[in-house]
Design a protein around this nucleic acid. Sequence first.
RNA 1: UCCUGAGUAGCUCAGCGGUAGAGCGGGUGGCUGUUAACCACUAGGUCGUAGGUUCGAACCCUACCUCAGGAGCCA
Length: 453
Amino acid sequence: MPETLRHILASESPQSAITVRGWVRTKRESKSCAFLEVTDGSCFRGLQAVVDATLPSAALLSKVLTGASVEIVGDLIESPAAGQKWELQATELRLLGEADASYPLQKKGHTPEFLRTIAHLRPRTNLFSNVFRVRSRMAYAVHRFFQERGFFYVHTPIITSSDCEGAGELFRVTTLKQGSPEKPEEDFFGQPTYLTVSGQLQGETFACALGNIYTFGPTFRAENSNTARHAAEFWMIEPEMAFCDLFADMTMAEEQVKYLVDAMLTECPEELEFFNKFVDKELVNRLKQTLEKPFERISYTDAVDLLLKSGKSFEHPVVWGEGLQTEHERYIAEEHVKGPVTIYNYPKSIKPFYMRQNDDGKTVAAMDLLVPGIGEIIGGSQREERLDVLRAAMGHHGLSEEDYSWYVDLRRYGSVPHAGYGLGFERLLMFVTGVSNIRDVIPFARTPGHAAY
RNA sequence: UCCUGAGUAGCUCAGCGGUAGAGCGGGUGGCUGUUAACCACUAGGUCGUAGGUUCGAACCCUACCUCAGGAGCCA
């Protein structure tokens, strides 16, 4: 493998006769020479190549427009001008792939809305190359966090027949033709199947065998949600821990968010500087504040109290027993706490059947971690491990034990207290980059009406 | 799905009843090292689509489409 710009730019001393391959970002021409800014994607910065007008290959310059791919041989020298430490004094320029005048990216800024229409070219821009380098680093940090703590990575199914009740609308998976007289039992799997909305239920079975496990993979929601925070296909991180209660669960969630924020601060400094300058000027401050102190914890009941006493007039009334609205969550995270906050012990009527019922009979051991600007980034709970209580909850939710017999079996054979949560990977990326639209942290976003590429 | 706003050159926008504009990007020429280079010239448009009002519509009205912001649902 030839050296990438990431290594070349970190060079300690000049080098002669090196080869650089990449894409032209800008060209600045004057009479005696031309300056080509070349990037290869390996890092944010590019390398300035100086092509003297007397070089034989300088004749190619008229065809080297923004977006063209080039191979340049030359000497890495200290740049005599301000703006960069190193530059490449070219001895030979080769045009690998022309980009004609219709190339849509120019050196001036583009709006994210326009760039979404050219998702195949936007990773060549500053913003998106930074976003997707960070996405890769963060995915690695997610695995590192769990692997360092002895968690096992479990690949839960993407096609599933269980609908993880309460997690939203599902996409149907079928080989039956539309309008076909065939019945579901004649379908490929012999029963209705869907794209998974969560690996949690299957994850629980592995936690009740391997101890601590996590999943990290794509999940799907067929909700007609049109917001900057929802996508039909997104990646979720779902740890599940045996012998774990709600408070240990909350501690784990906090530890993970801090670990990932720290990874952003220490491993992606160039990208972070860019985001802080061009995307969100408060980003670095906010990330540093996240690490400073323990996340506040407020019970749902106390949260309702403080909302009622806030003196704020909310569009939606604050009522114990109803879900917290976005405006309520924003007030708590952004005005009351001014930082990440975990709300726990929600009314059981608004939560799914598998959450553990508390002794008060009214609430379940659920928790949501809210962060300023984004809202819910993590949702989790301690799971109901008592056979009779779980059966009763399933009855209340109108679920048949037959459909979940394997899930109920976990409570029948060696049941243990266990807990877990789901962290939306894209929401985490929005938090650490400051990018405000989920469509801009996914390589090819799937939202209602949009599945191009 | 609901509410609000916006669609004018490849991109970002100005024009808001009376001959379609600028910057960037492209082309040509100039400039002794530029940094979103600079200077001059130049090409580039069914003003989202379809109706309507008017002597006259990019501009006013209606519908639809698309996008954005907010809400619901949630991660």
